[in-house]
Amino acid sequence: MTTTALLMIDVQRGLDDPYWGPRNNPDAESNIRALLDGWADAGQPIVLVRHDSVTEGSPLVPGKPGNAFKPELDGARPDLLFGKSVSSAFHGEVDLHAWLTRRGIDRLVLAGIQTNMCVETSARVAGSLGYDVRVALDATYTFDLEGPDGTVMTADELTRATATTLHGGGFVKVTTTAAALAELSPGRSPRG
């Protein structure tokens, strides 16, 4: 039976702050909850990652209310929970690659916030490390972003660009919450 870890990235209250600007995908939170429930029901491993910002004024600075997880993660019983201060979940307080390797986990499903930042970066690193990676795109969201020339790409445009880059570059399989849940194999979670 294949073990598939759910890597839930930066689903934090501070990402509801107007500081970030307009967002997309209002259904992301319900899809995030569906993934968590599906993984818990299947006994598959859940990893929660929290962004501990070192940027002054960020709502995600440790100790601020925005650093806490969003209500959609209430009741989640992760096999691993840790913080990071960079975009990649593989470069946080815990050596995620070593943790996964010790448990024989080579398949991951990623979801969370921001699609084109920490989710995409973590997916690329996971793909480069040889993991079989799925990104449940409808369980992510991001924000409009201004480029160096002053033009703004909308959150939807950035999400499409991320999906195209990840898919076209062969880094990962871009999927949906429903498809990720359909592929989920029930099994015992390698706790610890």
Rank of each mutant, 00 (worst) to 15 (best):
G21F: 10
R160G: 03
L48W: 07
L158P: 01
A98V: 07
P22E: 14
Y19E: 06
L96K: 02
T159P: 08
R103G: 02
A161V: 00
D74M: 12
V47D: 00
D95R: 01
D149E: 15
D138P: 04
L181Y: 10
A161G: 04
E183S: 07
V109Y: 00
P65H: 10
G83E: 01
G150S: 09
L145A: 03
Y19M: 03
P190Q: 09
R103E: 02
L7N: 08
P190A: 12
T164V: 11
D106R: 14
A136K: 07
L35C: 05
Y141V: 03
D17H: 01
F69P: 04
P18G: 12
P186T: 15
L129S: 04
P45W: 05
Q12A: 04
A139C: 08
A155P: 11
W99E: 08
G127H: 10
S128H: 14
P22F: 10
L60E: 02
S58G: 08
W99Q: 02
E56I: 02
R50K: 15
T142E: 05
A89G: 15
S53L: 06
L6I: 14
L145I: 09
V47K: 06
T165Q: 03
I9L: 15
E29T: 00
T55F: 13
T159E: 08
G130E: 13
G147K: 12
P78W: 10
R188W: 06
E56L: 06
L15N: 00
V49M: 13
H97G: 03
L36R: 04
V119K: 08
M117A: 15
G150C: 09
V61G: 11
Q44A: 14
G75K: 12
N25H: 04
D74T: 13
R134Y: 08
R188V: 05
V47M: 12
T142F: 07
L184D: 09
M1Q: 10
M153D: 13
R33L: 02
T2K: 15
K84S: 07
K84V: 04
P190C: 10
P71F: 04
V172I: 14
R191N: 11
T159W: 01
D41H: 11
I32D: 04
M153K: 15
M153P: 01
P45L: 00
V119G: 03
D27M: 06
A161Y: 08
D41V: 03
P148L: 07
F82R: 01
T142R: 01
F171E: 05
L96R: 03
S87W: 02
L137R: 00
P45I: 05
G38Q: 05
V47A: 00
L81V: 12
G130T: 12
P71Q: 05
L108T: 04
V47H: 01
A163Q: 12
C118N: 08
T175W: 01
G112I: 04
L7Q: 06
K70Q: 07
G14T: 02
A161W: 00
V94A: 06
D95I: 09
P59N: 05
V174W: 11
L110H: 01
I113N: 10
W99T: 03
P18M: 12
W39E: 06
R13N: 06
L7Y: 03
G66R: 10
G83M: 09
F90Q: 00
D156L: 04
L166S: 00
L15R: 04
L36M: 08
G75V: 11
